[in-house]
Write a protein that binds this DNA or RNA. Structure first.
Lengths: 224, 224
DNA sequence: CCAATTAGAAGTGTCGACAGTTTTCTTTTT
DNA sequence: AAAAAGAAAACTGTCGACACTTCTAATTGG
């Protein structure tokens, strides 16, 4: 395990994390009002650091704030979700392209091992099951990291996935779509191994576009 | 002119804007330390709202902050600029694609008028001149807005352009590349008018990719 | 009984003060 | 004279208090 230098953590950092996770696990629902006094008392801190944490999250668009009125958890409509997923498509498609160009030989090997492991899962082979969430994330994150563009990585793994997580939607790979999703993953890997940038971007886009359509139609059906 | 509802502005909003412009016009250079006490005294405000403004900018990655040490204006290397321009390529390419699909008839007319006006500039026709900055921005912003994806618009017109502006680089369209840049614009418009999404995205990507290469090589040459 | 008005309560905006940490500079030791 | 140790200055982190705005609800007038 890597040894990491100890960093001094300020209260603001702790509070930020606390609010983040509250948003991601649904304790703080989208659109819910966040009372400074209430939350400060609840967390046992004063309003100062709490306000700073809220400001930071405001900059990240997870919190919306109206002067003299207060802070709310960002309201996320299905339309907005769709917009975000389209953005993800563009960015992760580009990530796949860059990965095809910049991947190291070792990374290609690791990726092959990763996809082989997935393929051996019984649930995937039978087609009745689902791709588990963590392996699916691993797959996408791995490619993003292989693109060797730190900004892009920060945007996708940080901001964008944070926002998307706030929606708490069921990933469409968790929904009987596993066999198709796996085939799509295989196509992406094939293009990456062959260093075919165009094909890699196209395959990733197709994969995410399909997932997007499933997610959106499913959510629209749920929330009528 | 549109009538807009008056919004209460808090000190934090004012301070944020103040720091933003200081970064964009170079008063606060990238990497420069920002002293809370100093800036607070200079602006005639207390440290509280100033800290909140810094936190917000931290969330937007314009300010970097280390606990107990202080805040710095984000350091922007040429590599990082290149990374950002690649991201812009992906996003604005997608914007062009969406614009081709979602543009209204009226928008198509406006766009045609816009490009015709550019073409009649003597400086462009002779090829010796340059595309002025504002019209160039107008062109790009117009397409982004026509994509009808608010998130994408916010990202490109807001966050990303903010960050890019912090670099204060000379847009490559300002540098004798006007004739080529104009031809590239024309290709984009043609695809948009014909509702050819693939062509629109490809043309926009090509345009931005060429610009990126010019900008980066120019900056590397300047900063040896 | 309903609508408008107006105190009261609750909440956000801003500030100054104090505690703890980092930096700087002086002093001491080798 | 250079390096290490220690003291002082400067800065950031956190807090509680007060001013002002918004929301609530009781009161008054139609």
């Amino acid at each position: 395990m890597d040894i990491q230098p100890i960093e001094a953590k300020s209260l603001v950092d702790v509070i930020t994390k606390e609010i983040e996770t509250a948003i991601f696990n649904g304790t703080l629902e989208p659109g819910a009002k966040v009372s400074e006094q209430g939350l400060a008392r609840q967390l046992g801190v004063s309003r100062g650091p709490l306000r700073e944490a809220l400001r930071r999250l405001e900059g990240r668009k997870l919190i919306e704030r109206t002067t003299n009125i207060g802070a709310r958890v960002a309201k996320l409509s299905v339309d907005d979700l769709e917009n975000l997923l389209v953005i993800r498509e563009a960015l992760e498609g580009m990530a796949a392209r860059l990965a095809a160009q910049n991947m190291t030989e070792k990374e290609r090997e690791t990726l092959t091992a990763l996809i082989t492991a997935h393929g051996e899962q019984e649930s995937v082979r039978s087609g009745t099951g689902y791709l588990q969430e963590q392996p699916d994330f691993d797959f996408h994150f791995f490619i993003i990291r292989a693109a060797k563009n730190e900004r892009l990585e920060a945007m996708l793994c940080g901001e964008l996935y944070d926002l998307l997580r706030a929606y708490r939607y069921k990933s469409s790979t968790l929904d009987g779509r596993a066999r198709n999703a796996f085939a799509e993953h295989e196509a992406i890997v094939k293009a990456l191994i062959e260093s075919d940038a165009d094909a890699a971007e196209a395959a990733m886009r197709l994969h995410l576009s399909t997932a997007r359509q499933h997610i959106v139609s499913q959510m629209r059906a749920e929330r009528i």
